[in-house]
């Protein structure tokens, strides 16, 4: 996993976004009821393999304004989106939902792994996230299957334009073009 060195200016921009998120999810109030039982982290398949991805700490750090610790890397992107933390939190904190919103915020500042960016590009090019194959219909014919569906890349591009999803890729490029390894 690559490190994402986040500049001071970007951190300031993130501060506003994250503050808004904390307000929307009433996280200050909700986290006050979090008794740090660790059910979220204990249920997390990623935490089991990589202790740096720690949902319990991440939620608390969002509520207490010390989120910089996990935002200085791409660690937030390790979430497998299995939503076990969301199912099991005894205080009904929407752990995986909140951490997904955090990734929305990071993406807008260009903080996202290469493979996620590549999938966005695939959707723009072919309307789908799987790698395209020119030979697919031949292969499908051997299974007696009709030709593969053609996905509507134009529609995907229009929707990406509306929400400036392209900007995510541009921001990533700009951030990484800065010369940091």
């Amino acid at each position: 996993m690559s490190e994402a060195v986040v500049e001071r200016k970007v951190l300031q921009e993130l501060e506003e976004d994250i503050q808004r998120l904390v307000e929307i999810y009433e996280l200050e109030r909700k986290a006050a009821f979090c008794y740090q039982c660790g059910t979220c982290s204990g249920s997390c398949p990623v935490f089991m393999a990589e202790p740096e991805y720690n949902p319990r700490k991440m939620i608390m750090s969002l509520a207490s304004g010390t989120w910089q610790s996990f935002i200085n890397s791409e660690v937030a992107w390790l979430c497998a989106m299995c939503h076990t933390c969301l199912e099991r939190c005894p205080q009904r904190i929407e752990v995986s939902e909140i951490l997904t919103e955090v990734r929305n915020i990071l993406a807008r500042r260009g903080i996202l792994p290469d493979i996620i960016a590549e999938k966005l590009r695939r959707v723009m090019e072919r309307g789908m996230s799987a790698p395209y194959s020119k030979l697919i219909d031949k292969r499908r014919a051997r299974y007696g299957l009709p030709p593969a569906p053609v996905f509507d890349a134009e529609a995907a591009k229009l929707v990406f334009d509306i929400f400036a999803v392209n900007h995510v890729l541009a921001a990533k490029k700009a951030r990484e073009g800065g010369g940091s390894p």
Partner: peptide, 24 residues
């Protein structure tokens, strides 16, 4: 279904932009 797009996959699309994910 004719003219569909990627569902789209939550791991990259919901995580990058929930609005675009829901719209598609």
């Amino acid at each position: 279904m004719k003219g569909a797009t990627c569902c789209p996959e939550a791991q990259f699309m919901e995580a990058v932009d929930r609005r675009a994910w829901l719209t598609l």
